[in-house]
C-alpha cells in the first residue's frame, strides 16, 4: 500500500492520449483472497472527457472503478499495491485521508440507492456532512443540483417526501444530483443505466455528456453502443489486464488487439 516512485515501466503497452492526466494509475495490482484481479495497471485518464471501461463480465472493470475512490477498501481480503494519483496526490499513500478522496468523486451505482430520507435531505446529506448548516445555502444547493439533473420541476412541490417514492429513473437522477452536491471533480459510473428504461437511460447519458465540460467522467459499461454514444475514450479490460486504451473510434473501429476485435464484434461477452 505504499507509494512507488514514479517510473514508467517497460511493460506499459498502452499509450495514453496526449492530454494532461487528472487521474493517473501506476503499477496497480489487486489481489482478492489470493486471486490476482487486476494486473499491473498503468493508465492516465484524460480530464473533462468521458472514459468508458468495457470488457467481459468478471474481467475486473468494476474493481478498477472501485480502486479510484477506494471503495475497494471495504472488500474483504483485498490487497492493493501501486499508486493512484488524483491531481498528483497518491490516494493510496499511508497518510491519504479516505473521506477527503471520496468527496472528490461522485459515484453513480448500478441501481439507484436513495438514502432512507426525504428528497431534500438526500441532496443536503453530503453538504451537511462537510459542514454546510445554513438553511439558505442548503436550499440553494438542493435547487441547483436538482435543476442540473432536470428533476427540479418534477419534484419541487414534494421535496419533503421520501425519495423511495420516486420512479427508478428519477431516483438515479437524484443519486447523480446527490453526488454533484458535494462538488466532486470526478464522476464514476458503475453500469449506471443497467436498471433503467430506455428513456431514463437516454436522460442520464445526455446529462453525463453535458457534465463532462466540468467533470472527468469514468464509466463502467457492458453496453458497447452506450460506450460508443457517450465516451471519448475507451479502456478495454480483459482478464485483469488493460488490453487497449484509446479514442472511442480507434478502439471500436480499429482495435489493435485481436481479442478486442472479437469483443467489439460480439464474439466474446
Amino acid at each position: 500500500m505504499h507509494a512507488h516512485p514514479i517510473i514508467e515501466t517497460e511493460q506499459t503497452q498502452v499509450v495514453s492520449p496526449a492530454i494532461q492526466p487528472h487521474i493517473q494509475i501506476q503499477d496497480l495490482n489487486i489481489h482478492i483472497d489470493g486471486h490476482h484481479i487486476l494486473k499491473n495497471i498503468n493508465l492516465s485518464l484524460p480530464n473533462n472527457s468521458i472514459t468508458s471501461i468495457i470488457g467481459p463480465s468478471g474481467c475486473g472493470k468494476t474493481t478498477l472503478l472501485k480502486t479510484l475512490n477506494r471503495l475497494i477498501d471495504d472488500t474483504k481480503g483485498v490487497q492493493v499495491s501501486g499508486s493512484v494519483f488524483v491531481n498528483g496526490e497518491d490516494i493510496y499513500a499511508p497518510n491519504a485521508e479516505v473521506t477527503h478522496i471520496r468527496k472528490k468523486m461522485g459515484l453513480l451505482s448500478q441501481k439507484p440507492f436513495p438514502l432512507p430520507m426525504s428528497i431534500y435531505d438526500n441532496i443536503a446529506y453530503g453538504p451537511r456532512i462537510h459542514g454546510t448548516r445554513n438553511k439558505k445555502e442548503l436550499n440553494a444547493i438542493v435547487e441547483t443540483q436538482l435543476k442540473n439533473v432536470g428533476l427540479w420541476e418534477e419534484v419541487k412541490d414534494r421535496l419533503d417526501q421520501s425519495a423511495t417514492r420516486l420512479s427508478i429513473g428519477q431516483q438515479q437522477r437524484l443519486c447523480l444530483a446527490r453526488g454533484l452536491a458535494v462538488k466532486p471533480e470526478i464522476i464514476l459510473g458503475d453500469e449506471s443505466t443497467s436498471a433503467l428504461d430506455p428513456i431514463s437511460t437516454q436522460t442520464i447519458e445526455n446529462l453525463l455528456v453535458e457534465l463532462k465540460k466540468d467533470y472527468t467522467i469514468v464509466l463502467v459499461t457492458h453496453i458497447l453502443r452506450q460506450a460508443r454514444r457517450v465516451s471519448d475514450y475507451i479502456i478495454f479490460v480483459y482478464g485483469g489486464e488493460i488490453l487497449e486504451f484509446g479514442k472511442t473510434e480507434e478502439v471500436l473501429l480499429n482495435p489493435k488487439h485481436e481479442i478486442t476485435r472479437q469483443y467489439v464484434k460480439g464474439f466474446i461477452s
Binding site: L71, F113, G126, I129, R178
Partner: peptide, 15 residues
C-alpha cells in the same frame, strides 16, 4: 442493509 447503500453514503465523503 445493502452494501450499495453504505457505499452511496461513503462515496459522498461520510465516515
Amino acid at each position: 442493509i445493502p452494501a450499495e447503500l453504505k457505499a452511496a453514503s461513503l462515496s459522498l465523503g461520510a465516515t
